[in-house]
């Protein structure tokens, strides 16, 4: 009852992270997708050149992120008065009002800037050397795991939707125009999204720990 017939090595087995169902995994062709037959959770979706694509998209997104943060992304004009806001202004806006709100500014900084940047940097750190055909760096394992764990907390795309909502709210009242970093921020969101579709954690772990 407990034993598995023709007991496969643990290397060949995989457990569904959602429902714990156990599968024996043959070698999976690139581009194929393995799904749990019980809960339809994605098990494996190896892709050819995924590592390379992930590293390049991540580094592109990281570079644009630098530009997106510092420059104003919205410009407001009404009755001869004007104002503009950058991502940094937005993050600071809570702390400026009162010290009580300062934790919220810290949270915003984490969700919009720090954590997404850590994710991208972590991926580049862990996977970058693989692209160049070298061994994974020393802390590749914990760094990659951290990058994966941070996924729900990186809210770049949520922030972008927030920008859109804010835009709708004040568009009727004032003239709103986009600053340069608005577009780079959109590019960041798109690149991160493209990268995320490339990421199959389990496949990447296999690549990363390939002897």
């Amino acid at each position: 009852m407990q034993a598995v017939p023709e007991k496969p090595t643990t290397e060949e087995l995989i457990a569904c992270p959602q429902c714990d169902a156990l599968y024996r995994v043959p070698s999976v062709p690139d581009g194929a997708r393995l799904r749990c037959s019980r809960c339809h959770a994605l098990l494996l979706a190896p892709r050819a050149g995924a590592v390379e694509a992930i590293v390049s998209l991540a580094s592109g997104a990281l570079a644009l992120m630098v530009a997106s943060i510092a420059f104003p992304f919205l410009h407001l004009g009404v009755a001869g008065l004007s104002a503009e806001a950058s991502v940094i202004d937005t993050i600071r806006s809570y702390a400026v009002v009162s010290g009580l709100m300062a934790p919220l500014s810290v949270l915003l900084a984490a969700l919009i800037v720090v954590l997404p940047a850590m994710r991208l940097g972590g991926l580049i750190y862990a996977l970058g050397p693989l692209v160049a055909g070298r061994d994974p760096p020393r802390f590749a394992t914990p760094v990659f795991r951290l990058a994966m764990n941070l996924r729900p907390w990186a809210m770049t795309e949520v922030f972008m939707i927030g920008v859109a909502v804010a835009l709708v709210k004040i568009a009727a009242l004032a003239t709103v125009s986009f600053g340069p970093s608005f577009w780079t921020f959109i590019a960041v969101v798109l690149l991160v999204g493209a990268k995320d579709t490339m990421v199959c954690e389990k496949s990447l772990w296999r690549v990363l720990t390939r002897p």
């Binding site: 919205l74 407001l76 104002a83 503009e84 806001a85 950058s86 202004d89 937005t90 993050i91 600071r92 806006s93 809570y94 009002v97 915003l108 919009i112 809210m155 949520v158 922030f159 939707i161 927030g162 920008v163 909502v165 804010a166 709210k169 004040i170």
Partner: peptide
């Protein structure tokens, strides 16, 4: 986020 953006802007 919206509140932060609006108050910054």
């Amino acid at each position: 986020f919206v509140v932060a953006i609006l108050s910054a802007l």
